[in-house]
Amino acid sequence: MEELAEKFPDVRFADITESPENPDDLWINVTEPENEDREIELTEFFGDRTTDILMDYRYHIFVMPIR
Rank of each mutant, 00 (worst) to 15 (best):
E41I: 01
A5E: 13
E34G: 09
E34R: 10
K7G: 01
P9T: 09
V11T: 14
P65D: 03
H60R: 13
L26G: 03
I53V: 15
P65W: 01
T50R: 05
F62S: 10
G47W: 00
D48S: 14
I61T: 11
F8G: 04
A14T: 13
M1C: 09
W27M: 12
I28E: 00
P33R: 01
E21W: 06
I53C: 10
I16E: 11
K7C: 04
A14V: 14
E36T: 08
H60S: 11
H60N: 14
G47I: 02
R12C: 10
I40D: 07
F45A: 06
G47A: 06
P20Q: 05
E39L: 08
Y57Q: 09
R12K: 10
W27Y: 10
V30W: 01
E18L: 07
D24F: 08
D48C: 05
L42S: 04
G47D: 02
E3F: 08
D10V: 05
R58A: 11
T51N: 09
P20I: 03
D24C: 11
R12L: 08
M1P: 07
L4T: 06
E18M: 15
K7S: 05
P33V: 03
L42N: 02
T50Y: 01
F46M: 01
A5P: 00
I40N: 04
S19Q: 01
E41T: 02
R49E: 05
E32A: 07
L42V: 09
E6G: 14
E32N: 13
T51V: 05
I53R: 02
T50W: 00
T43D: 07
I66N: 05
P33N: 05
E41H: 06
S19L: 01
W27T: 00
R38I: 00
M55W: 07
E39I: 04
H60A: 11
E41K: 05
V30D: 02
E6W: 05
V63Y: 00
F45Q: 04
H60I: 10
L54Y: 14
V63D: 01
I16R: 07
E3I: 12
E44S: 09
V11H: 10
